[in-house]
């Protein structure tokens, strides 16, 4: 099934992706941001806060945004 996945880490990926039915928020996080800690991210499903074990539905809009980002002195 397809969901809209927005990863605001790195380059800012936003696209439809294919996931297995029954995929939870935590599972998607592991797949998409391996090695990262979920507590360092703002995770929203359909613009709402979501629990780790929430099962994703086809057509869901999932965003993951890091809560701490390194700023700079000069705009890159």
């Amino acid at each position: 099934m397809q969901i809209l996945f927005v990863n605001n880490d790195g380059g800012g990926f936003a696209d439809q992706i294919e996931i297995d039915p029954g995929t939870t928020v935590a599972r998607l996080f592991e797949q998409r941001l391996p090695g990262r800690k979920a507590e360092d991210y703002l995770i929203r499903v359909n613009r709402q806060p979501a629990s780790a074990d929430q099962m994703l539905q086809a057509g869901d809009r999932v965003t993951m945004t890091p809560t701490k980002i390194e700023g700079a002195r000069i705009a890159r």
Binding site: N8, G10, G12, T65, E70, G71, A72, A75, R76
Partner: peptide
Amino acid sequence: KLCPGDATAPLRKAVEQGRLADAFCL
């Protein structure tokens, strides 16, 4: 003016696509 550093690329994408909430959160 904020120097967004590592947020530069995702911020540009977010604004480009009208994802204002993401932009402000970044």
